[in-house]
Amino acid sequence: MTLWQRPRLRINSFKSFLSLFLVGTFLSVALAACGGGNQNNTNTDNSTATKKQDVEITLVSFAVTKIAHEAIIPKFVEKWKQEHGQNVNFKQSYGGSGSQTRAVIDGLQADVVHLALALDTDKIAKAGLIQPGWEKEFPNNSIVSKSVAALVTREGNPKGIKTWADLANDGVKLITADPKTSGIARWNFLALWNSVIKTGGDEAKATDFVTKVYRNVSILTKDAREATDVFFKQGQGDALINYENEIVLAQDKGLKVNYIIPDVNISIDNPIAIVDKNVDKHRNREVVEAFVKYLFTPEAQQEFAKVGFCGVDETIAKSQEFVDKYPPVKTLGTVQDLGGWDALQKKFFDDGALFDQIQAKKR
């Protein structure tokens, strides 16, 4: 019996081994196939995560914001790269706010517009490029930078210019930008008009005053930056009206500047908006929204404040450094006080309105 049992055991053992071998081989192939599929998926996911396509943002802004944006943009690019593993490339365009507005409406592929006044942003919205209600999308009614009007004179102030009223004096030559192309120029006009209204004058007196002042304008430049260059570099004019921030920047560049911030002034509010139609086409909304939100952070607001813009972030605006730099204005008017941009545009800046009438009388 023993002699017959051993071969049988061997045969059974061999069959068991063969069965186990085949099962094991099958499972190994199956597991390898499954494992290989998972490995390929993992590599694809990792490749997507680590090799995201670069994204591009086109920023269109008014001239005097350039130095602030050039300090802010690299910080945002670094932050986004660290948090999202993606490179952000910026295209930037700077010029007069009115000219920039027309360029965007005519096809300049802006993703973000930072303009001198809400009226210009509204024009782009009316052209169907920005969704209605844009001003409610971000803090502070989407006002991201502010300034006031400054009155600059020559060293020693030989013409004795101390107030807005002095700009109407005979023999004064004034430099300012053209309201037809420049946002700051419209603010300058409103600062002059507001100086009469806020001190008890009526519209007839205000009209007479701005007419006299613009008769003294020797050069109308296309934007605020050109006005600064004409006054300082070319030495033309007895006085210059410009943004306070533009004057602060001139000082930071080493220019000796004699200027006054008049006690009666206008709040120059500069809005920012996403150009929805372009962003939807470019499929970059996530990063564009993140950039605009970043502009309201203390880090970005500090860069605006460094170059002369009044902070819209209270932690920056109330810091001792910037309170000393930008003392409060006693009587500060707003666009809303004067009737709002739609009414002001029709009254002052439309073709044939008051500004054109004043220019026609000069010819």
Rank of each mutant, 00 (worst) to 15 (best):
Y259G: 05
V279E: 02
L167T: 04
N12Q: 15
A204D: 15
F76G: 03
Q359I: 12
Y259C: 03
Q336L: 04
E135H: 13
K198P: 05
F231M: 05
K281R: 07
I272W: 00
F322H: 12
D170Q: 10
R154G: 01
G128S: 05
D351W: 00
A204R: 11
R283G: 09
Y294F: 15
V248R: 05
V288L: 12
T50Y: 13
F291I: 08
N245T: 12
T207Y: 04
K253I: 01
K233I: 00
Q302K: 15
A239C: 09
A191L: 00
I72G: 03
A250T: 06
D313E: 11
I72P: 02
S99Y: 07
W164H: 14
K180E: 12
V312Q: 01
F348W: 05
Q131R: 12
L338Q: 01
G160P: 01
I241S: 11
K126T: 11
G156C: 03
S147N: 03
Q39W: 15
D106A: 14
K146L: 11
A305R: 01
A149V: 14
T121H: 00
N41E: 13
K162T: 14
F138D: 06
I124R: 01
A110W: 02
F291D: 06
N43A: 09
K253Q: 14
K362P: 04
A273H: 00
S267F: 05
K347R: 12
T50N: 07
L108E: 13
T221V: 06
K233Q: 10
V230I: 14
L119Q: 12
Q302W: 07
A305P: 07
V248Y: 08
E137K: 15
T121N: 09
E299Q: 11
G340M: 06
S19K: 13
Q234N: 06
K91H: 12
V248S: 05
W193V: 06
D122Q: 14
T44H: 02
S61W: 00
K91Y: 11
S97W: 08
T211P: 03
T65K: 10
T331K: 11
G35E: 05
A204N: 14
S47H: 09
L249F: 05
K277L: 03
G107N: 13
W4T: 15
F14W: 06
V217F: 11
V29P: 00
I175Q: 08
A224S: 09
E246Y: 03
K233E: 08
N265I: 07
F26T: 11
A127I: 08
D122R: 08
S195L: 07
I274S: 01
N169Y: 05
A360M: 05
D111A: 00
T65P: 01
Y326T: 10
N87D: 14
Q39D: 13
I241W: 04
K325Q: 13
V104P: 03
V64I: 13
R10I: 15
H282M: 00
K212W: 04
A103L: 07
E299M: 08
